[in-house]
Design a protein around this nucleic acid. Structure first.
Lengths: 233, 233
DNA sequence: CGCAAGCATGCTGCATACAGAATTTTGTTT
DNA sequence: AAACAAAATTCTGTATGCAGCATGCTTGCG
């Protein structure tokens, strides 16, 4: 095997720092996990299809061993299912699965909002406001991709401001499952305006540190997300 | 290698069914994952200690390859941390980690309670009542281990009755992290009485399908769990 | 006597090889 | 022509081997 960096590790934008500024050797494991996850989200690995370890390993330029380790990792995240003797299958999410996940996400974000009202600093809230303003800019330009990136950033920012790592972790897991759905459901800018209004209400409630209102708005926002996404399935 | 079933797979109570009722060959992967998870919970693998792949593989009677795959799986669950070049380390949970997890668990169980009030059948609720009655029996006999098993069963039963798989999944993940703590905090039967009273209130609210009251009681129960567990850290 | 540099050992990370299960293909029979 | 059976091929699951990095020890020098 020539190991000639055909693995696309260029789109690994993660910093090689381990949290305390120490340099960590970029691990092949993380690279493969991130790459395969993206392949699932972007539909390059279709839902319901079996994963052929040999071919995929060849395509990524790695041998089966680290690839299999990455597959086990993703299976634990719920993106793949493992059938003994048959290998890994990309998981299919039914409409009910998606709806159930959104219900849970709504509840988690509501909790995160409450905690953020208590624990976030004024500076941190200003940062979220700035994200929001940039998002509005992109909305007015109808610049879809940056708009959605910022959108997601705002949601994960609220999770960060809750200062609850366990909460951020479980949110991230469910979020990862839905990224594929959101990726598909990104069409149709006519629906944007409602979401933008929701976001304005979210920021305002956060700035006022009105926990009850923020929780309510976030949960409501998740209901509307379901309305927007349900057709895409 | 003799493969002589020193792996304690006897405590694998999982059915060998693949979801659609077909008999699936018991997979070595699952066995190793379950075994190592138990070793962590029971303290055989101490928190903060590095895992020696060679030794552990020898002890379990498997080679490093499937063991490493299992370790990646557990790492994704958050029970292990992977440092490139240094292998897997059993994760340390700080008091704040535990508290944060309990806060999220409380919120998840409250949601599960609300959904269970809507979605559970009368027969299912009766089953939970029976679990509860058996638990009370064990409480009166001061029979600790069955008591705690039934206790956990009741909580996961409520999750099942919510009929929301995503909810059950994230709950299970956090629950797994805390099993080690609960395992330690199982001493001191003087605290039981309060928990038993909570449980009585939980069942009553569920039988009345009073979602608001059930959610409140479940959240409150989680607060008291923190009181009971905090000293054990 | 203390510290640092170099060396030796051991462990992780990855690749490869082999055995057994699953699937597909082909040949035969009705 | 269709259906079943058997063989061949292909893929997964596991073991083993090797290279490189991390770590601890020893030795030499200040």
């Amino acid at each position: 095997m020539d190991q000639s960096r055909t693995d696309g590790s260029s789109d690994l934008l993660t910093e090689d720092l381990d949290g305390r500024g120490r340099i960590a050797r970029p691990s092949l494991h993380d690279a493969i996990v991130a790459r395969v996850r993206d392949m699932i989200i972007e539909g390059e690995l279709a839902a319901g299809s079996r994963i052929h370890e040999g071919n995929l390993g060849l395509k990524l330029g790695v041998s089966r061993t680290p690839l299999r380790e990455a597959l086990k990792f993703l299976a634990s995240e719920g993106l793949l299912e493992l059938s003994p003797g048959k290998g890994a299958v990309v998981r299919q999410f039914s409409a009910k699965d998606v709806h159930d996940s959104l219900v849970v996400l709504g509840s988690l974000e509501a909790l995160a909002g409450r905690l953020a009202c208590e624990n976030a600093s004024d500076a941190e809230i200003r940062e979220v406001r700035e994200l929001h303003d940039r998002m509005i800019e992109m909305y007015e330009k109808r610049d879809r991709l940056p708009y959605f990136k910022l959108n997601q950033n705002i949601h994960s920012a609220i999770l960060r401001l809750s200062k609850n790592e366990a909460l951020a972790y479980v949110h991230g897991t469910l979020q990862a499952r839905l990224r594929r759905i959101r990726y598909i459901g990104n069409e149709g800018p006519e629906k944007w305006s409602g979401a933008v209004a929701d976001h304005e209400a979210i920021i305002t409630a956060l700035e006022a540190r009105d926990a009850d209102r923020l929780a309510k708005v976030l949960a409501h926002h998740m209901d509307r997300t379901w309305e927007r996404v349900r057709n895409a399935i």
